[in-house]
Write a protein that binds this DNA or RNA. Sequence first.
DNA 1: AAATAAAGTTAGATTAATCGAACTTTTATG
DNA 2: CATAAAAGTTCGATTAATCTAACTTTATTT
Lengths: 226, 226
Amino acid sequence: MAQLKLSFTEENYLKAIYILSEKDKLFDTSTNKIAERINTKPSTVTDMLRKLTLKKLLTYEKYKKVQLTKAGEQMAVFIIRKHRLWEVFLHNTLKFGWDEVHDIAEQLEHINSEQLILRLEKFLKFPKYDPHGDPIPSANGKFDQKQRSTLSEAEKGKSLQVVGVKDTSPVFLQYLEQLKIAIGTKIKVIERIAYDGSLVIIFKDSPQLNVSRKFSDNILVSNTKF
Amino acid sequence: MAQLKLSFTEENYLKAIYILSEKDKLFDTSTNKIAERINTKPSTVTDMLRKLTLKKLLTYEKYKKVQLTKAGEQMAVFIIRKHRLWEVFLHNTLKFGWDEVHDIAEQLEHINSEQLILRLEKFLKFPKYDPHGDPIPSANGKFDQKQRSTLSEAEKGKSLQVVGVKDTSPVFLQYLEQLKIAIGTKIKVIERIAYDGSLVIIFKDSPQLNVSRKFSDNILVSNTKF
DNA sequence: AAATAAAGTTAGATTAATCGAACTTTTATG
DNA sequence: CATAAAAGTTCGATTAATCTAACTTTATTT
């Protein structure tokens, strides 16, 4: 693995395509979506798709859908692994806030050294999840897939533990920080409001709190832990 | 500081020019020397010197010598600061060998985040020297200049402490590792052999050892500490 | 100091990544 | 289903970094 060297740009395309394919399993990964995610123009994406096809990292015919090959997917997963391990380092070791780690990890993920990542992982004690609750693939590319659902799906009376977020925008993360909700926080659903899909919840020593549907849609929870 | 963004390549040129100017204070920093250090051709260097002159990071007229401006020097020192802090991290925290840290730090030094470096420095407890004994500039660009000389200059009978190396090639560093000489090792010069400039030394519980002039020329020592 | 060598520069070409504008294909909609 | 809108592609151009080959300037040496 990791035999052929890719440019930062190529790596970013692979990662973007991987993530888009994951996110929208129903819809095809399209030129425009890639362009938007990578902040470039569709014409540039077309060129790059050609290039990556030649390198056998994805399959693609013009006007048709894009799909990563085994090799391309492996590369993408490895980049995600690096990204998430660095996020753990930034958050746990250097004490960066939840919302500050992404941009720096975006740069660090391209550092090229297998050894570095193995040792970093060991130093961090083999974390399974990053600070946003996203799973960190192991060195052989496997994800630890824990049972997760959104808070919005939770039944009344259920006790749950926050394991991640879907929205990772600073505004959302900072709001969570303000509420003192973080990974690991235990939440109980007191009531479901049928009218607007909002929920009344409590957590830790908090008073009752009404949270919007939009809010609860973006909180990932598990109830397998207790 | 650090207002304008430079490419990796530009940063590498600045660093190379800074280091060459430091090393050979007597001789001018020349196109060919830069080319050799950066592993590129002289013609490429000429182009880059023009570009960096336009950006006011150095002064240069064709066929004349190159000199960094205040701004260029600040940038270079900041890159060296990053490089050396990362080396400390790799060595102290991730337990990489003395000889393994350079290449990875060469990549990490280009990561762009003032905060990251400040926090890394704090995490590492504000180290003053990197694993090779080279001083780490502080955030305001100042070096802690300790009294240093080479082992070859040491008088008979003197006790000294290793504070760094001049040669950082893997073969030399690995030899030191084998001998169990590292930063901090205390050495006593038993005898100076006039014939070939070699020295007889002892350190820790070692037996007497004869080391060549070439060897002792590349060990930096201080006797200010005890 | 003239000739030769070494160092440095210029010019033209190449590769990677990007863009805008014009064009083509696919999809959606009346 | 014809046509307009959306999506995607092609083409020519640009910028950064690099090279080679030819040329110029500076340094060295007899």
